[in-house]
Design a protein around this nucleic acid. Sequence first.
DNA 1: CATGAATGAGCATTCATTCAT
DNA 2: AATGAATGAATGCTCATTCAT
Lengths: 199, 199, 199, 199
Amino acid sequence: MGGTMDGTKQQRRGNTRQRIQDVALELFAEQGYEKTSLREIAERLDVTKAALYYHFKTKEEITVSLFEDLTKPLENLIEWGRGQPGTLETKREILRRYSEALKDAQPLFRFMQENQATVRELRIGDTFKDRVRGLRDILIDTEAPLVEQVRCFSAVFTLHAGMFVMADLEDDPEKRRAAVLEVAMDLVTQAHESTHGKS
Amino acid sequence: MGGTMDGTKQQRRGNTRQRIQDVALELFAEQGYEKTSLREIAERLDVTKAALYYHFKTKEEITVSLFEDLTKPLENLIEWGRGQPGTLETKREILRRYSEALKDAQPLFRFMQENQATVRELRIGDTFKDRVRGLRDILIDTEAPLVEQVRCFSAVFTLHAGMFVMADLEDDPEKRRAAVLEVAMDLVTQAHESTHGKS
Amino acid sequence: MGGTMDGTKQQRRGNTRQRIQDVALELFAEQGYEKTSLREIAERLDVTKAALYYHFKTKEEITVSLFEDLTKPLENLIEWGRGQPGTLETKREILRRYSEALKDAQPLFRFMQENQATVRELRIGDTFKDRVRGLRDILIDTEAPLVEQVRCFSAVFTLHAGMFVMADLEDDPEKRRAAVLEVAMDLVTQAHESTHGKS
Amino acid sequence: MGGTMDGTKQQRRGNTRQRIQDVALELFAEQGYEKTSLREIAERLDVTKAALYYHFKTKEEITVSLFEDLTKPLENLIEWGRGQPGTLETKREILRRYSEALKDAQPLFRFMQENQATVRELRIGDTFKDRVRGLRDILIDTEAPLVEQVRCFSAVFTLHAGMFVMADLEDDPEKRRAAVLEVAMDLVTQAHESTHGKS
DNA sequence: CATGAATGAGCATTCATTCAT
DNA sequence: AATGAATGAATGCTCATTCAT
């Protein structure tokens, strides 16, 4: 406290907003949204609770901002997907890119996966559902038989699950990601081929 | 007040414990564990909070009891599975029975899926993880290539997801279950065959 | 603390609700509604804040209950007045009784007079306005010339003001009340006679 | 941003202090002193809270300044009154001028009437009481019978009440003012004549 | 088998105020 | 003449839990 040039305080200037987001996400993912109090976040940052309120109007707003910032890449991906033809190759490319994108958004996704009940109440809930629906619309052929639709859905879910739950199957996250992606690809491919035939 | 034959109070006698569990599970699944207060549960049952404490020592205990009661069938299933040979047919039967079991435990599973962060803190967390691990050990061949292990994991997840998230793919829950089960079966079959060859 | 038979704690049983109301009214009147915190009320009663919430759902509810309890006599008076013929004697009797009633409701009225801005926001606001309007309707002849209407209004206000603001005109509250009542009576009498003639 | 001729900012130059007072008074009168935060005032003016502190040392100082600026005319009136002989005509003239003065100070008076509890705590409280006392000393003959003193007090109160509370008796504020003034005059006249005889 | 009354700890939020720039 | 960033203290309110009756 009160250091002169050690940068401890200096560094903090101007990026407090960012630091709040970081700590918040970390704690939300770790202990859940409800169990993480603003006091805790503030303490971790060595500021007062009131400082948080200078940067965000409410606790929910912190979450929303988190979501909006970290979710952009996915949004772009979906946008891109919508412009492509509905070929198998498009679908496979979507999965590839999605898997990549998830890597960066990991903590956010963990937070959302583990706090679904909470997320549903927050404003994000709907936005997120829209996003997942967007993905679904690209991957899934509504005309296809139900089983094939499920296969595609399952592909997406496998990707999600691969990030956290399968952690004890394989330590190296990159290897895990590759394996998970392969399974997802297979699922989508199977679905596509049994609907459109192998072209 | 002091009525003799209205039955409203009579009926309630003796099964309060059960009723607490029912209401608690319903609310936990609907709004999340943290957001459901004992006051709310008590109000819904038209008793006082203190009455809950006559039947359960803590809020957590309500949850644990819920979990223990509703989870028995799964436990039995795993027990059964462990005694069987590791053939493909065993695995497929496990999936069949698991899918069936999930049907009854639906609200519990919804609660667990949507409140993972909370569940982790509660004592249940580990117990549940043990259980899932048990399932995994039966389905997954630790020697098999990573991709095939993922496929099996994915099968289990697909079963879970099928209960809630895929609701908008198909209205009829029975048809949905059938399709989901089929996909899960395919995944396990594929995994088995590419590891052991088609026997 | 921890006395055995001195009644300090004994006395408190069962009338906490009442005691909350008493202290609340006292403080509201003394320092204003907004400046009186629940902490303060609780401390004065030597209970915790949470205890207040066992008896009242919100701070506003304390106020509403206060108002409802203390305002009954006035309500009855207005009810009575409505059933009487619109003669001068009725009006004078109303003033007499109103003056009497105000005596008991003194602290409440002080609170309302001194916190008008607050009262307006609270639910009471409207109820109270209705009540005053009821009184007005009995005393004031809507057909009468504006000046006479004002005279009647002024009579009511004089009664109110007499309770607090005129305190330094005369120490003895009973003498004060008599004088104030006389002025109010004169005002209403004047208004009545110049509208209906001296009958 | 940085526009040269839009005038929006230009106009605001140099009179910020004045504008703070205006907005503050408006909000104080509308929602009460306690319920009006500096944040709200600042937002309404499109400046930061800190800007307010450039112009006023505290929230209370804003209020005091308001009071001092808007109260001058009354002060002058009382000054004038003190120099006059205590005749009925003087008293009547005081009422006439007071009624006029109230017209301009309306929002201030509304603020003071509706936030009496608050005003009492502020430094203004006493100053204001002095002022009202000054008025009283001119209008009221301390030797006169109590009833007549009350009548005079009532006159002043009628004038105050006429500004807000009687609004629903008559829409046209000028007519209302005239009627109210007439009643007040009558009261004072009566008081004077029954004390000194009709001269 | 249950209630009435209360507690202690905590929470999200707001406020008036400060100060370096 | 004003801002950006922050503080310290308080507020209304909720929660899980306790215990005498």
